[in-house]
């Protein structure tokens, strides 16, 4: 079974559907059919995570797979993990479509709508923090500079330094920047950093915690 195209595994956070790398959508769907039909337990209504590598399924494939699982087997897809083949940082490996927002842990007990506005560039050696809400920066955060917030961090400029959102443990916090080329991102106690030498992409991006508590970055389109 080790070489099966799809496997179902139970993990702490629920059921995972693990898809072997380098298979086509058709093969995956057939394998799922076999797997589920061969089981003596009904799966209807259960939530599953999809674990897969980046290639060669496209995001359109993924969406189709999700519909397939929902409609045919009545499964809820609660998240998609991308396992990158090249063991690169997942920050580049996970584009937008693969994040399914309702699987994000939320705690809306506190009011994080409150935001502090900082009208300056945060330069090397400078720190700006708000432990009572979010921060909006009208400027850049340069390498060696740091922004810490218990809520979200929005940089209306280029984020080149460090940002730590959800500093009190609010894992649904996000970090957004017009250009996101940070040295390091932290949300709650999870840390991630982009590959060295990453170039700005020329569009806004947003970082949040996705499945498996990995900080993922996607193009920012809307909240």
């Amino acid at each position: 079974m080790e070489n099966a195209i799809v496997k179902l595994r139970g993990y702490k956070d629920g059921l995972h559907l693990i898809i072997k790398p380098k298979v086509s959508l058709k093969e995956v769907e057939e394998a799922i059919h076999e797997l589920i039909n061969g089981m003596n337990q009904p799966l209807e209504g259960t939530s599953v995570h999809i674990d897969m590598s980046t290639t060669p399924l496209t995001s359109a494939d993924l969406m189709e797979l999700e519909t397939h699982l929902t409609e045919k087997y009545n499964l809820n897809v609660s998240g998609v993990n991308l396992i990158d083949d090249n063991e690169e940082s997942p920050i580049i490996a996970a584009p937008a479509v693969h994040i399914i927002p309702h699987c994000l842990p939320t705690d809306n007990q506190q009011d994080y709508g409150h935001a502090e506005i900082v009208r300056q560039t945060i330069r090397s050696g400078q720190t700006t923090s708000s432990l009572t809400g979010s921060i909006i920066i009208y400027g850049d955060v340069n390498p060696g500079g740091e922004v810490v917030a218990s809520g979200d961090i929005i940089v209306l400029g280029t984020l080149r330094g460090n940002a730590h959102a959800g500093a009190n443990g609010r894992l649904s916090s996000v970090i957004m920047a017009m250009e996101l080329v940070p040295l390091q991102l932290q949300i709650g106690s999870y840390v991630n950093r982009p590959p060295i030498g990453q170039k700005p992409r020329g569009y806004p991006e947003i970082a949040r915690i996705g499945a498996e508590n990995i900080i993922i970055v996607e193009e920012f389109i809307k909240f």
Binding site: R123, S124, G125, Q126, N142, P143, G144, G145
Partner: peptide
């Protein structure tokens, strides 16, 4: 450049 940035802040 990094040091210059630090100095500008100060």
């Amino acid at each position: 450049i990094r040091d210059a940035d630090r100095i500008i802040g100060l």
